[in-house]
Simulated scan of single mutants.
Amino acid sequence: MSEIYRLATVEDIERLVYVTYEAYVTIRELDLKWPAAHADHDLIENNILKNECYVLEVDGEIKATVTLNKGNEIKFITDLPFIMWFAVDPAAQATGIGSKLLTWVEETIIRDKLGASAVTLATAEKHPWLLPMYERKGYERIKAFDSEKGDGTMHLLRKIVNPSGFEIYLQEKEIEKESEQEH
């Protein structure tokens, strides 16, 4: 079995539309307003071009995808790297393929390439299994909020990928906070 971790390209759009749309069936059933749940050619192309969309290809076929958000729209929630649009081909779910890709992005991209000490993501409280799944993968809830899109309570979760770096991050945040209070 050959496994290739890589950035998605526009040549991957059709396969990513299939994987993402099929993986998000529960999201549509719950009527959550997540763009990935309605993945089409234009949404996927925009995601590939504006963000870092990673895939895990197994024996020449994309089986899982996750996106590192490169925009500023989540800066009001966190300044840590934010991942989104995690999807696994339904035929490959519960095989560990998704966990392999997520771990690879957390370690190789977030920790090693970006030098970040932690990664964040958000999910809905009303989804029946996403919160416990991410918690099993080492994510912890750090903030509950209402996105005011009709999704109800959302949770921002964080996973520390470099503990010593995270201590430095927290110290820097404390210094920033003190500096802001002085001004």
Rank of each mutant, 00 (worst) to 15 (best):
Y169C: 03
A91V: 07
T95I: 12
H127N: 04
K100P: 07
T65K: 09
I83P: 03
R141G: 00
T123Y: 04
Y5C: 01
V10S: 14
G150W: 06
A122P: 02
T123M: 13
D151N: 07
V105K: 03
L114N: 06
P90H: 11
G98I: 09
F82M: 12
S147G: 05
M133Q: 13
H38C: 10
E61L: 00
E52R: 15
D79F: 12
D59F: 02
E107R: 12
R28M: 11
F166E: 10
L32V: 08
I48T: 07
I142R: 09
L68H: 09
I142W: 04
W34D: 03
K50I: 10
K113V: 10
D40K: 12
Q171L: 13
W104Q: 05
K113Y: 13
R111H: 14
T26K: 12
K75L: 13
V55C: 03
V105G: 03
Y54C: 03
K113P: 02
I48A: 08
I48H: 05
L80A: 15
K137T: 07
E135P: 04
A94H: 15
Y21N: 12
V19P: 00
D151T: 00
K70M: 15
N51T: 06
E14C: 00
K137H: 14
A92D: 08
E172S: 12
E14G: 06
I83N: 04
V58P: 02
H155Y: 13
N162Y: 10
Y54K: 02
I160T: 12
M1N: 10
L68D: 03
E180N: 05
V66W: 01
S147R: 02
D112Y: 11
R136I: 08
T95S: 15
I110Y: 05
N72W: 07
L170C: 13
T95P: 06
K149C: 00
E135H: 12
E45S: 11
